[in-house]
């Protein structure tokens, strides 16, 4: 039960966009600094390099770069920190990390061929990835 009893600290909302921006960079840095630990606990040396993981993290940040609402940024930061905490605490398994951060959204399927042109979008997404 110690796990659920743990105090969850939520930082106060960012007052300005500037503060949200600094906070985002801080979070990016802490994510980058935990890469060696992640490589170690999930034993990722044979599937990915630290710099690939780093650019993958950067890509996920960049995906939300257009957002200017500080509350939305704070929410995304919170979700990111939660995710990072889970990853670093080993609350995930190796295939989660590989599926989400190594293989990414392209998935293992190379569906550029003509054979599945008629397939529905649903089916294509189904083949592509579990993670949205």
């Amino acid at each position: 039960m110690a796990f659920t009893m743990r105090a969850v600290k939520v930082p106060p909302n960012s007052v300005s966009l500037e503060e949200a921006r600094t906070r985002t960079f801080e979070f990016f840095k802490s994510a980058c600094r935990s890469i060696p630990t992640v490589m170690e606990i999930y034993n990722l040396y044979d599937v990915v390099t630290p710099s690939q993981l780093r650019s993958n993290i950067a890509a996920q940040f960049r995906k939300n770069a257009h957002i200017t609402n500080t509350k939305v940024i704070d929410m995304l930061l919170f979700k990111g920190m939660e995710e990072l905490g889970d990853v670093v605490e080993h609350a995930k398994q190796r295939h989660h990390i590989i599926g989400q951060y190594v293989v990414g959204h392209h998935g293992l399927s190379q569906d550029s061929g003509t054979k599945d042109e008629g397939a529905s979008d649903f089916l294509k997404n189904f083949y592509k990835t579990n993670y949205f």
Partner: peptide
């Protein structure tokens, strides 16, 4: 951009 710069600085740290 600024994120790339931070990424490079992190790579240098490593």
């Amino acid at each position: 951009d600024s994120l790339d710069t931070v990424e490079i600085v992190m790579a240098l740290e490593e």
